[in-house]
């Protein structure tokens, strides 16, 4: 389903200096698999997630998702690809702070211009699934960390994407909330979602529903 072929990604730091985040990475992820990318900060985990989500383009190599070369997509098609296929859970949730939970969850649906009934149905379904319906009208900056994360998860799922990407999802949560999040991932796995998680949180290591743990070091896959 997801294939990274000889992918290299480098970033320009300042005006002249280039930093290589990924070096010649090859990776295959099957549909319905749960993959944990582990490694120290700056190892290149987040860069792999960005490339799979078409948030950035590889410097060289190819990324193929469902037989489509997403590394070659124009900006607009990359957005459409994300809209239809990707649910992204960011490390700092990346919610719009002064909007309500409801409005944040609705954000991916805004460009679709669905009928009110259809949008409402999708909204209700994810809010109930991730137990955040009772906070629908609360401004997200007034929610607790765990609640904010539920809003972020609901938002990532409101379009019913095939692929869920989570970047350090428990970095800002205590252990209890982290375990609750892991249970949510288990639920998503049961819905046959393909899940890619970048983390260095030991709670994710050795989980029964995780298919593979891949270690990244200095931009390369070591195991």
């Amino acid at each position: 389903m997801i294939e990274l072929k000889n992918v290299t990604k480098s970033y320009l730091v300042g005006k002249t200096q280039r930093v290589t985040a990924l070096k010649d990475v090859n990776l295959n992820i099957k549909e319905g698999e749960v993959i944990v990318l582990k490694g120290a900060s700056g190892s290149g985990k987040s860069s792999i997630l960005s490339l799979i989500a078409a948030l950035s383009k590889p410097t060289s190599g190819e990324i193929i998702v469902d037989e489509k070369k997403i590394s070659k997509l124009s900006d607009n098609f990359a957005s459409l690809y994300r809209r239809d296929n990707i649910g992204f859970i960011f490390q700092k949730y990346n919610l719009v702070p002064n909007l309500s939970a409801r409005d944040n969850i609705l954000l991916p649906l805004v460009p679709l211009n669905l009928s009110a009934k259809e949008a409402q149905e999708k909204l209700r379904s994810v809010m109930e699934m991730f137990e955040i319906a009772h906070k629908a009208e609360t401004i997200v900056k007034n929610l607790s960390g765990g609640e904010q994360q539920r809003v972020a998860i609901a938002r990532a799922n409101v379009n019913n994407p095939k692929i869920i990407i989570a970047d350090e999802p428990t970095a800002n949560l205590d252990e209890k909330l982290s375990l609750a999040f892991i249970e949510i991932l288990r639920e998503l796995k049961s819905l046959n979602k393909t899940i890619v998680i970048a983390t260095h949180d030991p709670l994710f290591f050795g989980l029964d529903f995780v298919d593979r743990e891949i270690e990244i070091h200095n931009g390369s896959i070591v195991r």
């Binding site: 989500a53 948030l55 900006d75 607009n76 957005s79 459409l80 994300r82 809209r83 239809d84 990707i86 992204f88 960011f90 990346n94 719009v96 954000l107 991916p108 805004v110 460009p111 938002r155 379009n159």
Partner: peptide, 16 residues
Amino acid sequence: KREVGILKALGWRIDD
């Protein structure tokens, strides 16, 4: 800027 980035990440196109 961050907000525009979030919206793009959530599937908004440039014209949206």
